[in-house]
Simulated scan of single mutants.
Amino acid sequence: MNTEIIYYKSPVGILEIKSENEFISAILFVNSWKGKKMEESSITFATPSSSVIKTAIKELDEYFAGERKTFSFTMQQNGTEFQQKVWNELLNISYGKTISYLELSKRIGNVKAIRAAGTANGNNNICIAVPCHRVIGSDGSLVGYGGDLWRKKWLLEHEAKFGNGVLNLFDNG
Rank of each mutant, 00 (worst) to 15 (best):
G96Y: 07
A129P: 03
I114R: 13
V111G: 07
G109H: 13
A113D: 05
N110F: 11
G109K: 12
Y101P: 02
A116M: 02
A129F: 01
I57Y: 05
V130E: 00
F73N: 03
F82R: 11
T74A: 15
Q83H: 11
A56G: 07
G122M: 10
R68T: 06
S72P: 01
F82S: 10
S105Y: 05
N121C: 15
N124S: 13
E59Y: 00
I114P: 00
H133Y: 14
G144T: 04
I108K: 13
A56N: 02
T74F: 02
T80S: 15
R68M: 08
V135E: 09
E103V: 12
A116C: 05
V143K: 15
I128N: 04
G118S: 06
S141K: 11
F71I: 08
F73V: 08
N124M: 04
N88T: 14
L90Q: 03
L60T: 08
N124I: 05
G118D: 02
R134Y: 01
D61W: 06
K69C: 03
N123W: 10
S100M: 08
N121H: 06
I57E: 08
G144C: 10
G122L: 10
A117H: 00
N78S: 12
A117F: 02
T98H: 03
E67A: 14
F64T: 01
E103F: 06
K69Y: 02
I57M: 15
S105T: 01
G96T: 06
K106D: 09
L60M: 03
G109T: 06
